[in-house]
Structures are given as structure tokens and as C-alpha cells.
């Protein structure tokens, strides 16, 4: 068994409200890996992220994060996991500034009854500089664009000084050029800070040049490996229920979905 395994699922099944979200999933993620989690809607991708946070735990099988079983994940462990949930719209007038939002990332490390110190404020400024948002420190969060808000959410995760970063559809609702710069930016963070990154997305082509491995999920784990291993026409067609073509260009592997046979 590899020593630097940071997340380990062993035959994990998670059910709630009489529905099985993931079934019999086994996988190991190593420290410092960038893993993309792909699959159709309702395939259990978000549930997988939430289980790594200890918010939902397996009904059978086991999930181990760091040295901790899912249901025993304690605060100090959670503080080492930065989570960027699927983006909800922030009300334009909601009274919260960029700096206040990022400061919330410090709260769990501070512990009960302690208020943020000067050092915490410095960490907030540094995290904002890291994501290129230092100039917006006092801006109302609701006034920023979708991409800028996402950067602030990343800063909030970074200010926790995490070892693992979990991102749920970080590029949804952002225009295409910004999506690409966002993925590049996340890939940079992964390398520079030696973070373990789990990123849930619909956009296979966008992430495939950047991730180390991909997990293809549809309740069960259909494939787990490098993009060229996972992006297989037969498996993708089975999982997505429609014809899928995989092509390589300039060393990258790309997926084209659609009913090509009808047009041919």
C-alpha cells in the first residue's frame, strides 16, 4: 500500500433518503494529485466530495481521509480541507465584503470563543493576493463578476492553509475564456502549493490537459486512471448513454459527444 495515500475509499456505498448515491466505490488518491471527477448529472459526484468532507458517510464500506474515518473527521482535519461548493448566486445587496468572506475561512482554525487577530488579517490579504484579488479587499462580494467571486471563494479555501482542495463545478456560470484561465489558475495552485485537488466538472475536455487522473462516476466507479486511460469511447458511451467519439490532437485527448450517426 502506498504511503502517501491521502483519501481512500474501500467498497464505499452511500445511500440517503432511500437512494443510493454511490455504490461500491474503491479508489485511492495520493497526496499532491490533481483528480478530475466526471460523470452525468446525478451520478454521485457531489456526494463523493461531501464524503471527503465528512458531511455524508458510507452506509457500507469505508472512507478514510488523512488518518481518519469519515464519521470521525474532526474540526482540525476539516480545516485542512478547502471546499468550494457549486456557486450559488450571491444577492447583489447582501452585506458582505470580499475580506469578510475570506476571513470566514479562518474561523474553523481559530476555535471557539477566539476572534480574528492581526495575523489572520494578514493571511486574508495574502490569500487575496494569491488569487489576484487584493485590490478588491473592501468591495461588496455581490458586486463582483462570476469569475471574480469564484476567485474569492478560492481565496477563502486557501486561507485555511489546506492540504486538500475540493471544487464542485468551479467553472459553471462563467464565460468560456474565463473558464480556461480559471482551470489554468487552479492547476498553477495545485503545482505551486503542492495541493491535492479534487475537481468535479461536466467539462471533460477543459480539464483533461491539466489533471493527473480522472474518475468516471455514475453511481459506480466506471473508470479511474490517466485521461488517456479513462477517455475510452466504449466506456463513455455506456456511461453517458449516447455515442461519444474520442480523438487526439497535439498530444491532448478530447471527447466529442452527439448523435453523429444520424447526420452521417
Amino acid at each position: 500500500m502506498n504511503d502517501n495515500v491521502i483519501i481512500r475509499l474501500l467498497n464505499a456505498t452511500i445511500s440517503y433518503q432511500n437512494r443510493t448515491a454511490i455504490r461500491d466505490v474503491s479508489l485511492e488518491i495520493h497526496q499532491g494529485e490533481f483528480v478530475g471527477i466526471i460523470g452525468p448529472n446525478g451520478s454521485g459526484k457531489t456526494t463523493l466530495l461531501k464524503s471527503v468532507l465528512g458531511l455524508v458517510c458510507p452506509t457500507s464500506g469505508s472512507i478514510q481521509i488523512f488518518d481518519c474515518a469519515c464519521h470521525k473527521l474532526r474540526c482540525h482535519h476539516r480545516a485542512k480541507i478547502g471546499y468550494i461548493p457549486q456557486k450559488g448566486q450571491i444577492d447583489h445587496n447582501f452585506p458582505v465584503t470580499v475580506a469578510e468572506t475570506v476571513m470566514m475561512g479562518r474561523y474553523s482554525s481559530l476555535g471557539l470563543f477566539k476572534h480574528p487577530s492581526k495575523k489572520d488579517k494578514e493571511l486574508v490579504v495574502n490569500a487575496l493576493a494569491e488569487v489576484g484579488m487584493a485590490d478588491y479587499k473592501d468591495a461588496p462580494l455581490g458586486h463582483l463578476s462570476g469569475g471574480q467571486q469564484q476567485r474569492v471563494m478560492i481565496a477563502r479555501a486557501l486561507v485555511q492553509q489546506p492540504e486538500i482542495l475540493l471544487m464542485d463545478e468551479p467553472t459553471t456560470g462563467i464565460d468560456t475564456p474565463t473558464q480556461y484561465s480559471m482551470i489554468k489558475f487552479i492547476s498553477g495552485l495545485h503545482k505551486n502549493l503542492n495541493l491535492t485537488v479534487l475537481l468535479v466538472t461536466h467539462d471533460i475536455n477543459m480539464i483533461s490537459p491539466y489533471v493527473d487522473r480522472m474518475a468516471l462516476l455514475k453511481t459506480r466507479l466506471y473508470a479511474f486512471g490517466t485521461p488517456s486511460e479513462v477517455l475510452n469511447e466504449k466506456i463513455l458511451t455506456e456511461v453517458y448513454g449516447q455515442q461519444v467519439i474520442v480523438t487526439t490532437k497535439e498530444g491532448g485527448t478530447y471527447v466529442i459527444a452527439g448523435d453523429y450517426h444520424h447526420h452521417a
Binding site: 468532507l53 458531511l55 480545516a79 480541507i81 471546499y83 468572506t101 470566514m104 474561523y107 474553523s108 485555511q160
Partner: peptide, 22 residues
């Protein structure tokens, strides 16, 4: 006063607060 930062967090985003171990 004692729980100010926790109340502050759950007021902004209860799910996120939960995910941070609050």
C-alpha cells in the same frame, strides 16, 4: 459575543460553515 464568528458564518452560508467543521 462568544459565538459571533460562528453566527456570522452560518448567516452567510450554512452549508459552507458545516463543511468547515462548525
Amino acid at each position: 459575543y462568544l459565538f459571533f464568528k460562528e453566527f456570522h458564518f452560518i448567516t452567510f452560508d450554512e452549508e459552507m460553515a458545516k463543511a468547515s467543521g462548525i
